[in-house]
Write a protein that binds this DNA or RNA. Structure first.
Lengths: 334, 334
DNA sequence: CTGAAAGCGCTTACAG
DNA sequence: CTGAAAGCGCTTACAG
């Protein structure tokens, strides 16, 4: 029944022109209030559905945003980025935009093939979720479309990107430990493995500095080699009273290790993590950690891309969003 | 530069008509092979991008599929359905369709509001991921668009749906236990909580029946109340040699419980799960389990919806897809 | 406040 | 093998 009812049909029924119908349905000026209401009612009655495609063709704007995630991030069932995508899709909806997901094949990434949704003008811009190859970034920078990177930062290239504030998050959670009376605080992570681990370390270090606590090299524990392969955690001879771990998984492993050696958490040693992922809550001791504020990051990304569509030469650079500490029971107050 | 190059521009450059260009670019008959090649080259040179919107308007087909997930399934970071969505998006791409995600608000679900992408004709069909309200199902059934349900089944309503074969999966994994010499096999799960748990129980029971093993009521352990609230697991006085658990999380809990009581898994008791989620691999003993074949389910869903778009009165009913057993080390051969 | 005309970029018959 | 004409359903100036 609903089949292909257009503005023309509504116009004919009411003896007005389709221009008037268009104005009424879009709440534009130039139609009397009564007529507007009447038109809306008739549209409703006739089961009219607006044809966004026709408008798109006219204004050359699809009202779709492509979200690109590199294939390698999508393997496991608990992909962080899919949750991110969900927020993006939801927030885009508030702006009356839709999200189209594009999983970027390793091959296409290597060969610098742009996605089909680009070549077919199905989207007005792209949000790139997570790291992609350098060559691909450059490729993307050269297309005449707004692009925002999310959760990825490259110091060598001039991109607009939204990242989580690793530095500040680690700084804050270390402050929290100190506020709870800790002065011997270790850090777990390989400082040269990723820039996140490094920035988190630096935040931890800033907190120590501010509180005039000397950094003890003994308290810095390696968790992986520089390629990212995890190694066995080696506890220092003399245990600090607390550890800041570069992520929850490592915090979880550390707690296990401590338990094995007969130490209890948090009674004998406090432990905090980062990420607030499943490892933070899976064992008996629930880990106090820093939660990446995905929603805020997604909101910012969407806001920026909408702005960039209006004004192409808008520049944002690097925006970092503060995470939130989630307090649980892995920290003892001394 | 690339700005708004159309078929007309290519046609003008070559002194042919845009009809010919359209035919060439779409690999249709009615253009000589040479001309076709020349047109494609010029298009490439000029940086032409096909305008899918214009075609869509013409053929009234958006080449987009909406994927609806109810809000309540998207809370946690490890959402099963987002992984499903990712497969769908990927497979749709092979058919040159795109996926648009729609998170269905609880309010919209309650008030029976169809998504904006429906009202604006941005999609040609819907895949509904997971359960939605009865009222909403009925609403969806009455729209003139192909719909496929995924991972959800309602016995009272006539819908096309793709589900995982709970019955057969549990049947197979129980067979595996028996093949390994087990004869005293328990089942963990509340038979009245969900139809999945019930179907899995029935598969387990079928395996026992086929092997002439008597069902021992003592061996059936409750894991939750009928509202789904988890309760403490109570081990039977006499322990069976193996347990089939209705999901990995419960398997994980059961193993913990057994360990607490001084039993080792699999040495003293074997345990298998269902789902192959994170709980299957998080503890030291890796759990043998049934993995839902998401990819195959997604493939089937996409195939069905594409078929339904071609032929509206195509009917599929209930299609169940067999899962795969993932063998690990929680089962001992007797 | 209302509407006739032109056009967005394609495709679909149909004619040559 | 090639192309002129009509049309998909809107919106955007512009004129009245």
């Amino acid at each position: 029944m609903n089949k292909n009812i257009t503005m023309k049909d509504i116009a004919d029924k009411l003896g007005v022109s389709k221009v008037t119908v268009s104005k009424a349905l879009n709440d534009k000026d130039g139609v009397s209030e009564e007529l507007k209401i009447k038109i809306k009612m008739v549209a409703e009655d006739m089961g009219y559905r607006y044809n966004a495609l026709a408008k798109s063709l006219k204004v050359s704007n699809s009202y779709n945003i492509g979200v690109i995630i590199a294939e390698r991030f999508t393997g496991d069932n608990r992909s962080f980025y899919l949750t991110f995508y969900q927020y993006i899709s939801r927030i885009l909806e508030e702006y009356h935009y839709s999200a189209i997901l594009n999983i970027l094949d390793s091959k296409d990434e290597e060969r610098l093939n742009l996605p089909r949704i680009y070549n077919q003008r199905k989207v007005d811009g792209f949000i790139i979720l997570g790291q992609v190859n350098k060559g691909y970034i450059e490729l993307l920078q050269n297309i005449e479309m707004p692009i925002i990177f999310l959760d990825f930062y490259d110091e060598h290239i001039d991109i607009d990107t939204i990242i989580t504030d690793n530095f500040y998050g680690a700084y804050e959670i270390t402050n929290y430990l100190i506020k709870n009376g800790h002065r011997q605080i270790g850090y777990v992570g390989n400082l040269n493995a990723t820039s996140s681990i490094q920035d988190r370390f630096l935040g931890y270090y800033k907190s120590l500095l501010e509180h005039r606590i000397k950094l003890n090299e003994e308290y810095i524990i390696n968790d992986r080699d520089e390629k990212g392969k995890f190694i066995d955690l080696k506890l220092p001879d003399e245990l600090p009273t607390a550890f800041v771990c570069n992520c929850d998984m490592i915090a979880y492993n550390l707690i296990k290790k401590l338990n094995d050696k007969g130490y209890k958490v948090p009674e004998d040693c406090s432990v905090v993590g980062f990420d607030n992922d499943i490892y933070a809550t899976i064992s008996d001791v629930k880990i106090t950690t820093v939660e990446v504020d995905m929603e805020e990051m997604a909101k910012t990304a969407v806001r920026c891309i909408i702005e960039k569509m209006k004004n192409t030469n808008e520049k944002y650079g690097r925006i970092s969003i503060k995470g939130n500490i989630v307090f649980r029971n892995s920290v003892k107050s001394l």
